[in-house]
């Protein structure tokens, strides 16, 4: 089984190919140059693995949440590859990827800065999602965790959370892929980003308001 994994939801490009038991990977900070260089890196990864895209059996794409523009780069590649080459595809969330990468007996709380005191977060225990991934006020999340009354660890980009103790996110591709790889594939047409938040224009139209 050959699996291709892609995550462009943050300022880092995380791509990997699992070829039998061997994992080829690239982790690279591309920031605003994601659209320019992601595909070049993907091409490089296939060379490293000595494979053609056609050899891949399954695609795993990270659907977000995270950078709206970033998500769409990897997702466009994954959808077009799955559709044209008729490959199986599944999507997972960036929060899952973060939770599965951490080896801990504690409750794991992946979080992504969503500005204005809000985060995209979920709560995971033994790889099970116990608080649904959502756009949530950081203080509300902390209140939930206090009530949960279990030992927990935050994982994410620590530079974005100066006041919290956050374990730096470093994807463990092998671990992530092993947990999700047997999920049933869905149609590439149905694969969509998971922004976890409407656009501001939609929120205004629907009268959705978040208290700061």
């Amino acid at each position: 089984m050959k699996i291709f994994y892609i995550d462009t939801s943050s300022s880092y490009l995380y791509i990997a190919i699992l070829k039998e038991e061997k994992c080829f990977e690239i982790k690279k900070k591309l920031g605003s140059e994601m659209s320019k260089y992601a595909l070049q890196e993907i091409a490089e990864l296939f060379k490293m693995a000595n494979l053609e895209p056609l050899d891949i059996d399954k695609i795993i794409v990270v659907a977000g949440p995270g950078s709206y523009t970033g998500i769409r780069i990897g997702m466009t590649f994954a959808k077009i590859m799955a559709y044209t080459l008729k490959k199986d595809i599944i999507s997972i969330t960036s929060l899952e990827a973060m939770a599965y990468s951490l080896d801990s007996k504690k409750v794991i709380v992946p979080l992504i800065d969503a500005r204005r005191g809000f985060v995209f977060a979920g709560v995971y225990e033994n790889s099970l999602n116990i608080l649904e991934n959502q756009y949530i006020k950081l203080s509300d999340l902390q209140e939930y965790l206090t009530k949960l009354n279990k030992e927990y660890v935050f994982v994410g980009d620590s530079s974005k959370f100066k006041e919290l103790k956050v374990q730096e996110y470093e994807p463990d591709f092998l671990q992530i892929i092993n947990i999700v790889k047997d999920r049933a594939p869905i149609s590439p047409h149905a694969i969509e980003p998971e922004y976890l938040k409407l656009t501001e224009a939609e929120e205004n139209l629907k009268g959705i308001h978040y208290d700061n």
Binding site: T76, I80, Y83, H189, P193, Y195, T199, L205
Partner: peptide
């Protein structure tokens, strides 16, 4: 139409949603 003009982020979201359907 309901926003009185093109909202860029909504447009981007619709593009990725449509892309493989339109190509197909």
């Amino acid at each position: 139409k309901q926003y009185g003009g093109v909202v860029p982020e909504i447009a981007s979201r619709a593009h990725i949603k449509n892309i493989t359907f339109v190509l197909d």
